[in-house]
Amino acid sequence: MRIKVKVKPNAKKEEIKKIEDDYYEVKVTVVPEKGKANKKVVELLSKYFKVPKSRIVLVRGETSREKIFDIQEL
């Protein structure tokens, strides 16, 4: 499954909001430097979709707020 994610770093609390079937807004409390925010997004998506972090791959948007992730379901 491929999803689009809009990341909002430096948020007050962490949450995932489903906007459309394949579009999500993810708020993280960490700063977007050295991939910290990307790691946190993968962590949150892992919990949300109940899949291991190793099954979530960032396809596009490493330095952008708009990202595309591939989630390989079990």
Score class of each variant (00 low, 15 high):
K47E: 02
K8N: 12
N10V: 00
V26E: 00
K8H: 05
V28P: 10
P32M: 08
E14V: 05
K34E: 15
K8L: 13
S64K: 15
E62G: 06
V5N: 04
K47T: 02
V30A: 03
R55A: 13
R55T: 12
K36A: 15
K13F: 12
K50A: 08
V30F: 07
V26D: 00
I71T: 11
D70C: 05
I56G: 10
V41W: 06
E73W: 15
M1L: 08
E14T: 12
E20V: 00
D22C: 01
A11K: 06
Y24V: 10
L58V: 11
Y23D: 05
K6Q: 07
T63Q: 09
K67L: 06
L74C: 03
V30R: 13
V31F: 14
P52C: 06
K27G: 01
K39N: 13
E33Y: 10
I68P: 02
R2Y: 01
N38Q: 11
K17C: 13
E15K: 11
P52Q: 07
I3L: 12
I16G: 00
V41Y: 07
K39P: 00
V41I: 12
I71A: 03
T63C: 09
K18P: 04
K53V: 15
T29D: 10
K53F: 05
E33C: 00
K6W: 07
E25L: 15
F69D: 01
G35Q: 03
S64D: 14
K17E: 15
L44K: 08
V30I: 09
S64R: 12
V28D: 13
V28M: 12
